[in-house]
Write a protein that binds this DNA or RNA. Structure first.
Lengths: 341, 341
DNA sequence: CTGTTAGCGCGTTCAC
DNA sequence: GTGAACGCGCTAACAG
């Protein structure tokens, strides 16, 4: 008997199901001896009551909101997650937040299908993941409202996303304004495994800033690789070994900027005296290491995403799109004027 | 009509519930016109099918594991969370991970009760939170196995926890071995809001190391406050303004160590030339800032905690306690021999 | 105090 | 193709 029910327990204990239910909910008084009989029966059968049946019977609907993202390793994802959780605790305490990560990029589609099929979700927050039209259709068909926190949905009301092209422009502009001309870019290769163009957009911003300032683009200054600090470290080593190494680097994320700085220092050079570095995101870490960066209000984007989703759940007809504050240049200690020292 | 059912939909569409069910699962063929009728009825009524009923009927049990922690702000919590998630994706893909944070310490008990009462959980991972005997009793009574990742359960099989006293000793010992005698401690005040003695234990390690090395304890070197980088910053300022400031600081967490370093540098002093700093945890951040620390394998502790819980769920009778690797001293660039420069 | 029974909302046979 | 039953496991209201 794989899944014993209260009936099995009742039979084993020689009582009625009502009695079993009572001891389960230790509600009304049950005689100590029958209570004991029931308890032992439960133990021996390994009985565990079905949540579904309980919910159905009591009418207590559990509301679940899923948050799916590639992983929770880079701080930027965690900060968004925190924003979501905060919004939930502020506005809707009766929702569960279920965390999903994509174990493998190839499995993303299957995982999404599983989520939809299980249909256990009332809403879904999709972070930095591409969603095909077919998947959107399945989601809406399954009645699961969703909000996207990525660049694949710009302009849609259920989309929270900064202007990454502009952000890339801002970062590069900052370096150019400081007099740098040999400005390198370190970022994700594109298209990436998750089909999200964030890296490409920031790169575009980089290219167009160079153009705007009349600085010729050099392909060797564009160092693209997988995401993360380690990869950025290696890419930077490559940059440093150029016959004309850059005097400034724009890394498309703070975590990659940290990798750059580590590589620069490992090579015996100083930041910013020898090479300026600017990142992107402004995660907490950046304050600690004094990194100049472009702030994209990550936590708030999670917060707004959750708010939008809750709107979608309560008043689907009438959701006003919520907007992120504009990107901000945050100047700290890793950038300086060319030849200032 | 707040919660329309398939019956309502069927009536509105002038069909039977079976048909509605069919279009819902777009299984067997339904005539396009009736399909349309049903769809519009669904839309107009705002019908959403009950997950509970569906689960009950299909027999698909959803398995949920809860992870509750005070917050997800400090990286140490996130790293444990990541370990849990990884273990889940490795060993049991059919479990959901539901994240709970304690909005207010006072509400901790109520939130736990709500979790138990909703009884939506198959298991619970409790991180850095104190659990009273009464709460444990309620949990077991509700048939919810749980694993504790904190210091309130040392020795129990469902407990994952490092030897924090020893860790505090190790950190302090490192500083003392380097010749420091004016060794300060920066850490959480105790008892803290969440009733967890971690801070107190590390502090005990600090005190006993001093004693072992024959270094008199000075109360003014023990700087206690709320958790976090900002508080550590201020505590350090206080330490620096002493007539005999410390030459070394043991901060009970890496994040607090960062606060110390920021304060030291803001005061125009250098780390480690003027003051050595050692932290505790070895979160990712610490590698980036070159912090000397005591590694407690946070991610792995989340991983082991989840494994233990899964054991508890599958073979309750036969769970072998899982052990964390021993604490490790990780020497980087924020500590040096007294007067070495 | 305790056994019995009627739903909870949906999926799924069955006959039609 | 479609409607009408039954059952999923549990709670609650009702008799006893």
């Amino acid at each position: 008997m794989p899944n014993p029910t209260i009936y099995d327990v009742a039979r084993a204990a020689g009582v009625g199901v009502g009695t079993v239910s009572r001891v389960l909910n230790n509600s009304t008084r049950v005689s100590p001896e029958t209570q004991e009989k029931v308890l032992t029966a439960i133990r021996e059968l390994g009985f565990r009551r079905s949540k579904a049946a309980r919910q159905l019977s009591t009418g207590t609907q559990h509301r679940n909101i899923g948050a799916i993202m590639p992983y929770i390793t880079p701080p930027s994802f965690v900060e968004r997650l925190r924003g979501m959780q905060t919004a939930l605790s502020h506005q809707a305490n009766d929702f569960n937040l279920i965390l999903y990560t994509v174990s493998e990029p190839k499995r993303q589609h299957d995982q999404l299908l599983a989520l939809i099929d299980q249909s256990n979700l009332d809403g879904l927050l999709i972070t930095t993941l591409n969603v095909t039209d077919e998947e959107r259709e399945l989601l809406t068909q399954a009645g699961i409202p969703f909000v996207l926190l990525s660049d694949v949905c710009a302009g849609e009301p259920n989309c929270i996303s900064p202007d990454n092209i502009h952000g890339g422009y801002m970062a590069t502009q900052h370096l150019l304004e400081l007099g740098h001309r040999r400005v390198a870019y370190v970022g994700d290769e594109f298209p990436n495994d998750y089909g999200v163009p964030t890296g490409e957009l920031r790169y575009q911003g980089y290219v167009s800033a160079l153009e705007a300032y009349g600085v010729p683009f050099h392909a060797e200054y564009a160092a693209l690789g997988v995401h993360g600090e380690e990869a950025a470290y290696k890419l930077t080593q490559g940059l440093l070994s150029l016959r004309e190494p850059p005097t400034a680097i724009f890394a498309m994320s703070d975590i990659q900027a940290v990798g750059c700085m580590l590589a620069i220092r490992a090579a015996g050079l100083r930041v910013p005296e020898d090479i300026s570095v600017i990142g992107f995101d402004d995660v907490q870490l950046s304050r600690y290491v004094g990194l100049t960066t472009v702030r994209q209000h990550l936590e708030q984007s999670g917060y707004l995403g959750m708010q939008t989703l809750l709107d979608l759940l309560s008043t689907p007809e009438n959701v006003k799109p919520r907007h992120l504050p504009p990107l901000e240049l945050v100047v700290r200690q890793t950038t300086q004027r060319l030849n200032a020292t």
